[in-house]
Design a protein around this nucleic acid. Structure first.
Lengths: 183, 183
DNA sequence: GTGCTTTGTCCAGATATTAGACACGTTTGT
DNA sequence: ACAAACGTGTCTAATATCTGGACAAAGCAC
């Protein structure tokens, strides 16, 4: 089973070629861009399943600012397409910032092929999940209620619903297990 | 303005003392544990606003497995309390895994005091936010609809609601801006 | 073009939400 | 200790929302 379209954005042609060879068997299509300039247009046109984005363009600038900017821009425009970042400079602060800015994952060069495939697959799978409205609601209600120490009046207030409605919701689904957040 | 209760868990007494001094002025209370053994009990009793958890216990074991286990355990039991991880071994993989396992943030030793305070404050603020039910619903609807390329029938199906209901929801809130995910 | 899907629109019955009210138990402040 | 303030569980009646079902018209596939 192949995993749709992968878009790779990296300014190193050797990397693009390498990725194309390594992942060509795993994805139906592997598109490449050597510069993020046309990224938005390309994404809009091709609707990739996942994006592999390098963090370091403009030679000599390796703070990752460039990649971070593009991450934000792409993620803002296409919040549903998972973006996996890749960088040669293993920097914890950068990785944390990237994940908090919406990156699906963060890997370092040189990469392990199987790991990269797993990461991209995970990103696609996670992005493809759709949570039913009712479940989303139940979970959120439970969380807020929990944060209010079970105070239904306050919870209802924070949730923007009436106390009775919250009351009904709670007794309607007395035990909805919370989704895990594990990897 | 002080930021509630901080619980620090670290097996190095010197660190505990240092943190107590550095952050005593910022938090109303700073509790410390030199081992995570009693973490769950302490948290249940003290309801800290945020937890600062070291990743490396049992001397010689520095893979972070220990801390990761405790992160999962604590986060599973108290999903509403933000957990900031701290480690001496800057490891990108570990940081990524931690964030995906529910950590609010990830900092490395030696830490910068102001940065640590900012991180803890951010974690508390973010955890304290409560999103009204209607907004949560709107955003989710918009995302799913987007993922379905605007196909309302399919989106409604995935969301577990009827097509007409989705139709009504969409025309009820034609332009709900998505919340940002920035740091 | 012919079929299949989707859309926009309507209906009427079922369900959910709402503000308000009430008695009762629990905190809180003094 | 006492009163005031607050939260709960319960009820009602008006309003709103959700639902399956139906229909013609528009869009897409082959």
């Amino acid at each position: 089973m192949k995993y749709g379209t992968l878009l790779v954005i990296d300014d190193n042609p050797a990397i693009l070629t390498a990725v194309k060879i390594c992942l060509g068997g795993t994805f139906e299509r592997v598109l490449t861009l050597s510069s993020p300039d046309k990224a938005l247009a390309t994404i809009a046109q091709e609707h990739p399943s996942v994006i592999l984005l390098d963090m370091n363009f403009s030679l000599g600038v390796n703070s990752g600012q460039e990649g971070m900017m593009w991450l934000s821009a792409i993620h803002r425009r296409f919040p549903d397409i998972p973006i996996v970042l890749i960088t040669a400079y293993a920097d914890v602060k950068l990785a944390v910032r990237a994940l908090k800015n919406g990156a699906a994952d963060f890997v370092t060069k040189p990469w392990d092929n199987d790991e990269l495939i797993r990461v991209l697959k995970d990103a696609i799978d996670k992005a493809g999940e759709v949570i039913p409205l009712e479940q989303l609601e139940s979970e959120h209600v439970r969380k807020v209620l929990n944060k209010c120490d079970g105070n239904m009046k306050r919870a209802a207030d924070l949730l923007g619903i009436s106390r009775q409605t919250l009351y009904n919701k709670v007794k309607a689904s007395p035990l909805t297990p919370l989704r895990g957040e594990g990897e």
